[in-house]
Simulated assay, not measured.
Amino acid sequence: MAKSQDDSAVQDPVIATRSTPTASITTFRDTLYISRTLILPDDRTLAVVKGAVSVNTSDDLALNYLKAHTEFELLKE
């Protein structure tokens, strides 16, 4: 005898394919170096690559760190 399909195991295809909204990114230009590693006060690191470093706009610690140092310049998107 065949088992009936359990509807609780089937996902709604619309819900399953929904993606999370993309995070907004802010980019700063490093006026001194084209490559370096920055260490934030909470011991996280940020990589400067090709003279730029990008952070999520919701990362207040990283944004405040970069804005507080004169060697980083906010780039217009």
Rank of each mutant, 00 (worst) to 15 (best):
A16I: 12
A62R: 00
H69F: 06
A2Y: 07
A52N: 02
T26W: 05
T57L: 06
P13T: 06
T37M: 07
V49G: 04
N56K: 05
V49N: 09
Q11N: 08
P21K: 08
L66C: 05
L38T: 05
D30W: 01
I39D: 09
E77Y: 11
V53C: 00
A62I: 00
P41D: 06
Y65M: 12
S35L: 07
S4R: 13
S54P: 09
L61I: 15
V48M: 02
T57G: 08
P13F: 01
Y33Q: 06
A23Q: 15
T45R: 13
T26Y: 03
Y33L: 06
K67R: 14
S24R: 15
Q11L: 12
H69C: 06
L61P: 03
T45V: 12
S35M: 08
Y33H: 06
V48R: 00
E73Q: 11
D42G: 03
T70P: 04
L40Q: 00
S35P: 00
D59P: 01
L74M: 13
E71R: 14
T31W: 07
K67D: 09
D6Q: 05
R29G: 04
A2I: 14
T20W: 11
I39R: 15
S24F: 11
S19V: 07
Q5N: 13
E73P: 04
S19Q: 15
F72T: 00
A47Q: 13
V55I: 09
L38Y: 02
L61Y: 06
G51F: 07
R18A: 10
K67H: 11
T20D: 14
E71W: 06
F72W: 04
K67L: 12
D12G: 05
E77T: 11
S58T: 13
N64T: 03
L66W: 02
R36P: 01
T27D: 02
L38V: 15
I39C: 09
G51P: 02
D59Q: 07
P41V: 05
D59I: 07
A47M: 07
D30M: 02
R44A: 12
T31K: 13
A68S: 15
R18K: 11
T26R: 09
T27S: 07
K50H: 12
V48L: 02
T37Y: 03
K50V: 07
D30C: 09
V55F: 02
K76P: 03
S19Y: 07
A9K: 09
V55G: 02
K50W: 08
T37V: 12
T37Q: 09
S24K: 15
L63T: 07
T20I: 11
R44Q: 10
I39M: 13
S54V: 02
V53R: 00
L74D: 03
A62T: 00
D12Y: 04
T57W: 06
S8W: 10
Y65R: 03
R44F: 10
S35T: 09
A9P: 04
S19H: 12
